[in-house]
Design a protein around this nucleic acid. Structure first.
Length: 492
RNA sequence: GGCCCCGUAGCUCAACUGAAUAGAGUAUUUGACUACGGAUCAAAAGGUUACAGGUUUGAAUCCUGUCGGGGUCACCA
């Protein structure tokens, strides 16, 4: 029952993760982000904290206008229904479409003798997109209707992806509603003399004394930038929840951004809550060919990947000839194994580190993998079913006078360590610690299982002890895997 | 170029934050009771922890330098 306590009166711990853009579907990088955020929230909960999961959807800006414009120009009224496509994929298709036309137009301009820079400034399609953004910001009704419609398509798609991945949120913020925040803080900083205004009206903060650069906080036209919004959003959340900690699950490419964010809040503005911000920075998922780039089509799509994993689980299971279940049980099992393998593959790596994903070799089902652990669990459950059928009483009668073998001793020691592992994982925000522990436990059990007879053991008392150890191992495996967001089957 | 992160078996990852012989998985080779479920287990082999110095009783871990890889330095988010 580790992990089931939740003290409501505790100050909450805010954890932001996922934070997608609404111009394209989720990919492998988001998967690492989502799995981490969700798992860390479960681990914190198990450590007696009160996590609140929040998502901040980037639903406005030039990139969304690109998709909108491309759809308007080339879409011929296509909808997710008419195209028989998930909404996020459809919108993503037009984002790519925009880029294609953009490149053609820029080529045309260059062939007319323009320089790269000149051409980039004058691409008609880009000018139109910028015009669209201006209209959006001025509240143009038609543009807002289009924006709303296409975003709704995307949300429907995201919901499906999130649900399949098994993650959720307590609260969702939309950037369209928060992007104006932070201006008051900028004003405050100006009055304190922490920031300064340049001749063109733009506002800056000088962090050169802290070893960083000068950073823009407000454009010369008075509009806010990413940093401004993040300052404002942090304050908003602080006032809304009074959290003891605010965790941001964001890739390590934004380390610099968060250094600045903390510095500005803590040192420049003297905000206490700046201290409570923690950037849970995770490494990138690299492909054998290098970094993922959406424009070059080298992204691994989240939906495709999940589908592929589940398919592989099916094939492996059928190859092993284990299909004496009903078809409904089957599909549930294949999801459990396929998604389990994917989640474990990603979570077992230290979050801080970059990791490699090779689609060709795909994800193994043997060795240090979720299916291995799931198999161990299923096997123990099978033992326990047999014990139940044979009406074996698991209760150890006389625990004083028992000689444990080295295998039993090791397993018991291992089981005892579990709460410490969870605590450590909580302190370090590292699901990997739990993954590695559970794997060790499963491995130790398999050795035990292989080397030591259970039902064939003649001494009744020893038999009971072995069964009980098995039962506990299964329990801890199940609990540990649950903290990774991975389910574990009764049989497989 | 400035700043930040990383470099551990062929490959993918560990190493309780400075401790004793650097561990797993995978790939390779070999073996396992007519099975309590073989998606398992056992064994062999695989390393000068990128390199060179330094600190320490003790370094993969801390410091300095070199080489190699990545990130970041937008009036994008």
């Amino acid at each position: 029952q580790y992990g089931e306590t939740k003290v409501q009166s505790l100050q909450p711990t805010l954890i932001e993760y996922s934070s997608p853009n609404t111009n394209k579907p989720l990919h492998l990088g988001h998967i690492r982000n989502n799995l981490l955020g969700y798992s860390v929230s479960l681990i914190l909960e198990a450590c007696g904290k009160n996590p609140i999961k929040v998502n901040l959807i980037n639903d406005r800006g030039i990139h969304i206008c690109k998709s909108m414009l491309a759809w308007q120009k080339f879409g011929k009224g296509e909808t997710p229904e008419s195209a028989n496509m998930k909404g996020d994929h459809l919108v993503g298709k037009y984002y790519v479409e925009f880029d294609k036309h953009y490149k053609t137009e820029i080529q045309t301009l260059k062939s007319q003798g323009m320089s790269d820079e000149e051409a980039a400034k004058q691409v008609p399609l880009m000018l139109e997109a910028q015009e669209m953004l201006r209209k959006w910001e001025n509240g143009d009704e038609k543009i807002h209707a289009l924006w709303q419609m296409m975003n709704d398509w995307v949300y429907a798609g995201f919901d499906q992806t999130y649900r399949r991945l098994g993650v959720d949120f307590d609260k969702t913020y939309y950037e369209s509603k928060t992007y104006l925040l932070g201006k008051a803080l900028v004003e405050e900083g100006l009055q304190k003399g922490a920031f300064y205004r340049k001749a063109d009206g733009s506002v800056w903060v000088d962090l050169t004394a802290e070893g960083l650069d000068e950073k823009l906080l407000l454009r010369s036209d008075g509009t806010s930038v990413y940093m401004t919004q993040d300052l404002g959003t942090a304050e908003l959340r602080y006032e809304e929840f009074y959290p003891s900690q605010m965790i941001y699950v964001v890739g390590n490419e934004q380390n610099y951004h968060f250094d600045v964010l903390k510095l500005v809040l803590e040192k420049k503005l003297g905000k206490e809550f700046g201290k409570e911000i923690h950037h849970l920075s995770y490494g990138m998922v690299e492909l054998p060919c290098g970094k993922m780039k959406s424009r070059e089509g080298t992204v691994v799509d989240a939906d495709d990947l999940m589908e592929e994993m589940i398919l592989q689980a099916r094939e492996s299971t059928e190859a092993l000839g284990k299909i004496d279940f009903t078809s409904e049980e089957n599909s549930k099992l294949f999801e459990m194994i396929g998604l389990g393998a994917l989640k474990y593959f990603i979570l077992k790596v230290d979050p801080k580190k970059n990791m490699l994903f090779d689609p060709a070799e795909s994800i193994d089902f043997n060795g240090n993998t979720a299916p291995f652990i799931q198999y161990t669990h299923a096997r123990i459950k099978s033992l326990l079913r047999k014990a139940l059928a044979d009406q074996v009483d698991l209760k150890v009668q006389n625990s004083d006078d028992i000689h444990l073998g080295i295998n039993e001793y090791d397993l018991i020691k291992m089981l005892y360590a579990y709460p410490q592992v969870v605590a450590l994982a909580g302190e370090n925000f590292s699901p990997a610690l739990i993954a590695n522990y559970v794997f060790e436990l499963a491995k130790d059990f398999n050795r035990f299982y292989q080397e030591v007879p259970i039902f064939k053991e003649e001494d009744e008392e020893i038999r009971r002890i072995r069964l009980q150890i098995s039962q506990f191992v299964a329990l801890v495996i199940k609990q540990g895997m649950r903290l990774l967001g991975i389910e574990v089957p009764e049989k497989m």
